[in-house]
Design a protein around this nucleic acid. Structure first.
Lengths: 139, 139
DNA sequence: TTATGTGCAAAGGGTTTGCACTCCG
DNA sequence: CGGAGTGCAAACCCTTTGCACATAA
């Protein structure tokens, strides 16, 4: 586990700052490419590789959450909660709400142990159509 | 949803059969590349593209389950249960056990609805170290 | 000064696709 | 015979990496 007190301090750079600002500005999960394009569009020149490298670092430090989309893209988001939580994401607009589910955590842990597993981890993501999108396209 | 009764029938081919056999022979999630290599090794010539195409088709028909690994690979497995279920996978040896969790399903559905979401779906995977692997390497 | 961070472009790795050929029905 | 299925190789796409240059400490 990456511990804040042990973590080697990282040098503050213009690029890193721009990245943080960009992330602070949106509430949806976004891809590295998307973020990079956004920065470029707003005149902030940052190498794509730098975006990837920093995003990974920030993820490792728990500054941002990462999700692997079904299409195989990693999308990032600065989350409100520092603690372990899950997300309900709108398939239509990307609206994201954070939720915690102790019951689920315990269930996963228990089920795994029942089968002789230890060092249990889990991933859980929920997606659907938010109220607004459901009205717009009531599939 | 792909309905068996509506699904356009697929032509039986040597390749498809080989693929099914291969899948029937293992209990772990395997990548398309891995499966392809296995077939080649056993003398069964099948194009890699064909493996990918069939695996996708089978997944769409619910004949096999797919999981996206953290490394961005899709891994496939012929499951015992036809119904919706989740997996507990051993990080050490790949041992996989299928589990159902009605409580979790209901929780996800409820949480999403509480936030105004509809057409809810979810993905949940659990991983850990199986008893055997825990002994071998008690991390 | 000097190690860390950045940029660029090339390389990687898994997956998809175009197109001509095969083979089931 | 006609079209679904296949093989091969090229194309794709996201991501990572090597290396020379820039920069915070």
């Amino acid at each position: 586990m990456t511990d804040a007190s042990t973590r080697p301090e990282r040098r503050p750079t213009r690029q890193r700052a721009a990245l943080s600002d960009e992330l602070a500005g949106t509430a949806e999960f976004r891809s590295a490419q998307d973020i990079h394009a956004s920065l470029s569009a707003s005149g902030t020149r940052v190498g794509l590789a730098t975006v990837y490298r920093n995003l990974q670092a920030m993820a490792a430090d728990g500054e941002v959450d990462v999700i692997r989309t079904t299409e195989g893209e990693s999308v990032y988001r600065a989350c409100a909660s520092e603690q372990h939580h899950h997300h309900v994401v709108c398939r239509g607009c990307g609206l994201t709400v954070e939720v915690t589910g102790d019951a689920v955590e315990r269930w996963a842990e228990a089920v795994a142990r029942d089968h002789g597993f230890s060092h249990v981890r889990h991933t859980l993501e929920i997606d659907g159509l938010c109220a607004a999108c459901a009205v717009r396209d009531p599939r």
